[in-house]
Design a protein around this nucleic acid. Structure first.
Length: 262
DNA sequence: ATGTCCCAAGGATTGGGA
């Protein structure tokens, strides 16, 4: 089973690129972020025609997340990150696909830091940590996939010294991610490739992709009960080099669910 | 500070966000 995450940066502008990627790589589950479309403007007919069921949480102009499942409809569990009913931003969905709990997230960027946006990021992180602990406690196999807007370590940034004051790399942000992982989650790409430079995002500015000046900010975390199924992990790097690309690179894991059966 | 791209308002270009 392949589970992927892809920040599309506008489902309207990226539908062609998305459909091409789905056709080429055929992920069983795809978590999408930054739909940048209201609920009624999600291209369900095209997604269905590509062989995928979907649930999504839209929002005008910004944010927006979706979970796609090949040949089936995701069974929705939770819409919106628990912990703050006043939070109106569309950044979190949970669904069950093939008995695996799929959490798709778009964690706030948080810039400029310090400031209210950074405070919102850290508060959102605390809610995520609380929800993630609940998920661990269920014992269910879970993957939390998405755009975390966090580079976990210096290996995940092309020039760490330039990013120390940025909301994506500040000590508070990295510490929050580490606390999340320390609950028992496995950072799947880093587990498979412990020393490799892997980037999942390249700025549109200054030919960042051509210079390989990237960041690793899209992650798939596996619960302790799912980690034994991990077989491979990687990115679809070349997608970023196409015409009119998203600024993010699709990122995926390959799971062998038969390894979970006793 | 800059660079680029997406979306929306308004009906061209500008502003917000990343």
């Amino acid at each position: 089973m392949r589970v992927a995450t892809f920040n599309v940066n506008g489902i309207g502008a990226r539908l062609g690129a998305l459909l091409q990627w789905l056709e080429e790589t055929k992920p069983d589950v795809a978590c999408l972020q930054e739909l940048k479309a209201p609920q009624e403007r999600f291209p369900l007919a095209e997604i269905n025609a590509a062989g995928y069921g979907a649930i999504w949480q839209g929002q005008k102009s910004w944010n927006g997340v979706a979970i796609l499942a090949r040949g089936t409809d995701p069974v929705e569990v939770t819409r919106g990150l628990p912990g703050d009913p006043s939070d109106e931003q569309s950044r979190y969905l949970e669904a069950v696909v093939n008995d695996i709990v799929i959490c798709g997230l778009y964690l706030p960027n948080g810039n400029p830091a310090p400031g209210p946006k950074f405070d919102y990021k850290l508060a959102w992180f605390e809610r995520l940590i609380a929800r993630a602990q609940q998920l661990i406690d269920t014992g269910a196999p879970v993957v939390i996939a998405g755009d975390y807007n966090v580079m976990p370590t210096e290996l995940d940034v092309y020039k760490p010294e330039r990013w120390v004051d940025d909301a994506l790399f500040r000590p508070e942000t990295r510490a929050a991610f580490q606390r999340l992982v320390n609950q028992g989650w496995l950072d799947a790409l880093r587990a498979i490739h412990p020393d490799e430079v892997i980037y999942t995002f390249y700025d549109y500015f200054r030919n960042a992709y051509g210079r390989n000046a990237g960041l690793r900010i899209d992650h798939l975390l596996l619960s302790p009960t799912l980690a034994p199924a991990l077989r491979a992990a990687g990115t679809d790097h070349a997608v970023r080099g196409r015409e009119k690309p998203s600024d993010h690179v699709p990122t995926w894991v390959e799971l062998d669910l038969s390894a979970l059966k006793a």
